[in-house]
Design a protein around this nucleic acid. Sequence first.
DNA 1: CGGGGCCTTGAGAGTGATCAAGTATCGTGG
DNA 2: CCACGATACTTGATCACTCTCAAGGCCCCG
Lengths: 223, 223
Amino acid sequence: MYVTLSSAFTPAIAAPVGIPNPAPAQRRTLSVGAHLFREGDIANNIYEITSGVFRLSRVLDDGRRQVIAFGLPGDIIGFPNGTVHHSDCEAIQAGAVISHRRHTLDTLKGDDATHQRLLHAALREISAMQDHLMMLGRKSAMEKVASFLVTLSDRIGTCRDELTRCALPMSRADIADFLGLTIETVSRTLTRLRKAGVIAFDRAQTVLIKDKDALLSAAQARV
Amino acid sequence: MYVTLSSAFTPAIAAPVGIPNPAPAQRRTLSVGAHLFREGDIANNIYEITSGVFRLSRVLDDGRRQVIAFGLPGDIIGFPNGTVHHSDCEAIQAGAVISHRRHTLDTLKGDDATHQRLLHAALREISAMQDHLMMLGRKSAMEKVASFLVTLSDRIGTCRDELTRCALPMSRADIADFLGLTIETVSRTLTRLRKAGVIAFDRAQTVLIKDKDALLSAAQARV
DNA sequence: CGGGGCCTTGAGAGTGATCAAGTATCGTGG
DNA sequence: CCACGATACTTGATCACTCTCAAGGCCCCG
């Protein structure tokens, strides 16, 4: 990983200048499978991920699931709309978050710097979701999987000897639900990339990108 | 896809306290086909739609298009991420917008009430896009089309005599690109709903919803 | 060593895409 | 006001990508 960010993200507590009552930011740790919040929970906080990997998802009545986003260190997750959350957020790799009181973003009384940081994270989120919409609506299975690998390896891949090594912290089912595919199609597509010599595997949870150019062209589109 | 640059986001830290310069909001009118902005344009403004209908979309090199959103009166469109827009926005029905200077949202020097309004619009946008992701990733053609009609008629439909009349200000191609389908599939699906007695048409641009319950169940799931 | 997830692979089916006409609808100019 | 052409929409036939169902293999952990 672009080992990361705990440093780049100085918690809000550190910066009270003239403000008498800075919203206290609390730290919280979660083990694998623990929920940061569930659909229907009151949305009191916004979370800044300091470590671990989180999965934000929505589920239909009949069980169909869409993964909205994967939260990595540095990401901010849980933007409120209305009083309750409309999605589930679960740790898929043990980690920790800093909880910011919702009104830090919602109102203007509080820590301005944190307000700004949360706001800009929301704008980045909108932009990322636009990419995601394009991917879900208009890309083929191969393009989806390749795009996913490109994006993930840009975030958490490590380059060494012409080879980018990238952990896949999420299961095939999670990837499938993120890309709007089935597990089988994800698996078959990864196999296709492997047999074409574009990628290789290390125990199914780690992908080695052998030919970044080929992967980029499989991802199509302006990257 | 593009990379989102957090570096592009360093907000103006040196905030003058006096606020001598409240941002002027300007009005602008657009006829059909006129662009509010295009991909690559400098993102100086955020727009509040007062009339007309706008289409926000992204296009891949090979011409594949994804409609991100339709902007109706009351909607706010053009949230910036980075210095330039990453999507196109075009009037598909003549209308007008109020332009808000970007820094009204970006910074905290300016009109607080407007800042709040834009911010909350951004949060609503995130929530709406989550619905859209679920629709694109996990719904069938019939569910997509039915969901679309339900959502649109909730926004701009008028109820009369057990019948909801709803204009379709956008073309079939726009609907298709919004739902991640082809024109033909949209058309066939609408025909199927019509033959089932769920909807009827008035010149292809106006749909009459005859059986809202049936439409809702075709849309499946809570939308 | 055995059990249970998770992942991969295979065969067949189905939904939606593609290719191709055919039909309305709308705007324009005679 | 009507004729014409252009554009948009509908319908049909066929194809292909992805899903579904099913089985087998791998790996982790007790």
